[in-house]
């Protein structure tokens, strides 16, 4: 690290571990550069929560629950309550979606609290010199989540209103039908703003958080721990809040999509 300047250090930390799969079929487009670290870490973290929850749920009993079942129940009841309050009905699918988003995003955000240099250092011993451990710092991931939600919203709109109903909804609101071009443009902007704001909010928060950890890592060691400590405690709040916001907004958007005008 000593031979790196500050900006080199930061830039090093902001680069993903990339694999160019475009070579396989002779394309040089940057689209085929995939971020192995994002994919791998998010997958592992997803598997972690799936494994733990499944363990808690597998021997679920209506009698006295074990500790793991208790944890799983608390999480599920928490999400289920949000779903019920927003949708006014119980919904297994929305609940599962919300739970997955909340836990997955939380765990990926949580990687931000692992010391910035720890995992990259460990990786470097195995010959991997680029590693970004916070998957939610990758726009690919946040957009993957929000686009999935966006596609789901369109699907839910059509399912609850029918294609014609959805078209009417798009063309005849908020102004009367003869202003349909304005209506349509407004609605498209409104709909597209949802996934963009979802993903950019999460990305921006986590990116800024990580950047500050990097800046703290650049100051002398004796000044690092108070600042790092304070920021880490504050960050615990941020990562939970961001995960909650992503889940909550998804549920709210779904309830809006199910509504009839």
């Amino acid at each position: 690290m000593d031979q790196l300047t500050s900006s080199e250090y930061i830039q090093h930390h902001l680069k993903n571990l990339t694999l160019n799969i475009g070579d396989l079929f002779g394309s040089s487009s940057s689209f085929y550069l995939i971020h192995i670290d994002t994919l791998l870490i998010s997958f592992l973290l997803g598997c972690l929560f799936c494994f733990v929850l499944r363990k808690g749920a597998r021997r679920a009993t209506s009698g006295t629950p074990g500790k793991l079942q208790n944890l799983t129940e608390v999480l599920i009841e928490f999400v289920d309550e949000q779903v019920r309050e927003t949708l006014l009905v119980k919904d297994k699918f929305v609940g599962s979606l919300g739970l997955t988003i909340f836990l997955w995003v939380f765990l990926m955000n949580f990687m931000d609290l692992v010391p910035v240099d720890l995992l990259p250092k460990v990786a470097s011993w195995f010959g991997i010199h680029q590693l970004r451990v916070v998957a939610t710092n990758d726009l690919n991931l946040t957009f993957a989540l929000s686009l999935s939600v966006f596609l789901m919203l369109i699907f839910i709109n059509i399912r609850y209103k029918g294609i014609i109903g959805y078209a009417k909804d798009l063309l005849c609101h908020p102004f009367p039908w003869f202003l349909f071009p304005i209506n349509f443009v407004l609605r498209v902007v409104e709909e597209i703003a949802k996934p963009i704001s979802l993903s950019l909010r999460l990305f921006g928060n986590m990116y800024a958080g990580e950047l500050i950890f990097m800046l703290i890592a650049l100051i002398p060691w004796w000044a690092q721990w108070p600042l790092g400590g304070i920021w880490a405690v504050f960050h615990i709040l941020i990562i939970t809040l961001q995960a909650f916001i992503f889940m909550m907004l998804t549920i709210v958007y779904i309830s809006m999509a199910r509504e009839h005008h």
């Binding site: 689209f31 085929y32 971020h35 994002t38 997803g46 599962s96 979606l97 991931l141 993957a144 989540l145």
Partner: peptide, 22 residues
């Protein structure tokens, strides 16, 4: 880049798993 689609698939798998088994 293509990571986006990989992540969407992963996401779908996790949602499906939660919906089905948790």
């Amino acid at each position: 880049n293509a990571t986006l689609f990989g992540q969407m698939i992963t996401f779908a798998i996790f949602v499906w798993f939660t919906l089905k088994y948790v």
